[in-house]
Design a protein around this nucleic acid. Structure first.
Length: 514
RNA sequence: GGAGAGGUGGCCGAGUGGUCGAAGGCGCUCCCCUGCUAAGGGAGUAUGGGUUAAAAGCUCAUCGAGGGUUCGAAUCCCUCCCUCUCCGCCA
């Protein structure tokens, strides 16, 4: 919701800025409703004032034992007058409110002017679009032989725009979620949070999905006005609804994995192939509540946090600054991260990071106490996906496809060292990666090597060559002496592995405050 | 699902029709006093809206939410929501 003061005092200028978002504000209607509101509200409150003072006078007279009948006569028809004025005011106010709630946020000055995604501005790119010596397939073709991605199956179970994943694909999907959560909690300092996936009308109004975009949501057939969440942004951001936080409580940084449910009404015929656009998908979302002065820096930080995931996965992408016409309802500015999809031969959105300024906060009455003024002030909200899990899976499959139809994902290299020299190679060799990502912290290479050795039954000389140098970079300094002494005989590997498993959590856990 | 209790300001807690936006306490802020492991005294301290360019001031609303009774409702009546306790059921 925009600041009502903008509507009252800078109506024309605001309307002009909204036009860059493709929104035509009915200036005449707003003006007329606003002047009606002003008049009616003043009259109503004056009537209430007289009623209050008259009633008080009656009370005083009565306690003195005076005759109150004349006073009663004086207020005889005050109630009726008040009722009718109240009703008039309510009508005007609800129409005005309806109008205000439907006005989108005003784009920031740094937002490019434009009508559609063609007018978005590329801010930067990372990596180069993957090239193949053969014709690249899309993820549907890649998985068609193994049958591990089930579109027909899901259609039978539910309908179109759903999917089933099996075996290694399901494991990789799960592993990606863990991986993203681990990176954001351990490396970027977000607090992981679990929230309801069903929310009420107030929450959706707070973040801006309602009242305008009801058709995009799945509503429960329930008199309680419950909806499935279209994004974790809704429950997470609404945690601060109707709250006044201490200045010290900001910034708040949350990472939340959740399923997302979108009806995709109005997108008939778009992205019907594959799992790009689904009614249900998983997403890891970053949400920040910050002081107003910090929100622009927070947007940059949050976007770069999301980029980290793509970089660690070695996926080429670009960052675009959305133009006014492509900007979402509540956003003042949005960076989209677009990952390269060889199957489509283009960049596709995999994350959307936005600064909402105080737009959501005003709807939610989410405030903080500014120590300089001592007064409650609206906070700013910033959020973004990091990342959409289904699309990440698609990007991995398509970018790491091999000519023979297999997929080799060099996560061992990219995630751990930022190099691509040590592959795990097998047909859809995802399982080992899953284990690695599920259990271990990104940098603790030792454990990964140990697991790999066990699995691959590699020689002890390999162990000596790899484990010793790696262990120096890890926090497992306690292992170093024994490694040196024994040159890591192969027989000790099971012991080391179990040690690692037992200590993985406590060793990797970051320091948590009191 | 059954039975009962309850929802009041940052927190605790009083208040069953009339200067109650709300006693008292705690906490917090400021001031005063006092040289000793501290205490005492005083003042202030809700949120939203309107009026205003803004502030001050004035004013309206808010005691879980919504309706009703009344000149007047935190207080009486109705509906709903939520919390707690006990029982039942259950991942």
């Amino acid at each position: 919701m925009l600041d009502p003061k903008l509507i009252r005092h800078e109506l024309e200028a605001t309307a002009a800025r909204l036009l860059t978002k493709g929104f035509e504000l009915d200036v005449m209607q707003v003006q007329s409703l606003e002047s009606q509101r002003k008049g009616l509200q003043v009259e109503t409150e004056e009537l209430q004032g007289t009623r209050n003072s008259q009633s008080k006078a009656i009370g005083q007279a009565k306690s003195k034992g005076e005759d109150i009948q004349p006073l009663l006569n004086a207020v005889a028809n005050l109630g009726d007058q008040l009722d009718s004025k109240k009703q008039e005011l309510e009508v005007v106010q609800s129409r005005l409110n309806e109008l205000l709630m439907a006005i989108p946020n005003v784009p920031d000055d740094s937002v490019p002017v434009g009508k559609s995604e063609d007018d978005n501005i590329e801010v930067r790119t990372w990596g180069v679009p993957t090239e193949f010596t053969f014709t690249a397939r899309d993820h549907v073709d890649i998985t068609s032989t193994s049958g591990k991605m089930g579109f027909e199956e899901a259609t039978k179970i539910t309908g179109s725009r759903f999917v089933t994943l099996r075996g290694q694909l399901a494991q990789l999907h799960r592993a990606l979620i863990q991986f993203m959560l681990n990176v954001h909690t351990i490396e970027h300092g977000y607090e992981e949070i679990y929230v309801p996936y069903i929310v009420n009308r107030e929450s959706l109004t707070g973040t801006g999905q309602l009242p305008k975009f009801e058709e995009d949501l799945f509503k429960l057939d329930d008199e309680r006005d419950f909806y499935l969440i279209p994004t974790a942004e809704v429950p997470v951001t609404n945690m601060v609804r109707d709250e006044i936080l201490d200045a010290a409580a900001l910034p708040q940084k949350y990472v939340c994995h959740s399923p997302c449910f979108r009806s995709e009404a109005g997108s008939y015929g778009r992205d019907t192939r594959g799992m790009i656009r689904q009614h249900q998908f998983e997403k890891v979302e970053l949400v920040m509540m910050v002081r107003p002065a910090d929100s622009w820096a927070a947007l940059e930080e949050l976007a770069s946090n999301a980029e980290t995931i793509l970089q660690k996965l070695g996926l080429p992408y670009r960052v675009v600054n959305l133009c006014g016409g492509d900007l979402g309802f509540a956003a003042a500015k949005t960076y989209d991260l677009e990952v390269w999809l060889p199957g489509q031969g283009k960049y596709r959105e995999i994350s959307s990071c936005s600064n909402f300024l105080d737009f959501q906060a005003r709807r939610m009455q989410a405030r903080w106490r500014n120590p300089e003024t001592g007064k409650p002030e609206l906070m700013h909200t910033v959020n973004g996906s990091a990342l959409a899990v289904g699309r990440t899976l698609v990007a991995l499959l398509e970018n790491y496809q091999q000519e023979d139809g297999s997929v080799r994902i060099p996560l061992g290299a990219t995630v751990i060292h930022g190099r691509r020299d040590s592959y795990l190679t097998r047909e859809l060799e995802l399982c080992a990666i899953c284990r690695y990502i599920l259990i271990f912290r990104v940098e603790t290479c030792l454990w990964w090597v140990a697991a790999k050795l066990l699995e691959e039954k590699l020689s002890s000389s390999y162990a000596a060559a790899h484990i010793l140098p790696l262990s120096r970079r890890t926090s497992l300094t306690r292992l170093q002496p024994s490694c040196r002494k024994t040159s890591m005989p192969f027989t000790q590997l099971p012991m080391i592995l179990s040690f690692c498993l037992a200590n993985a959590w406590s060793l990797q856990r970051p320091t948590i405050g009191p």
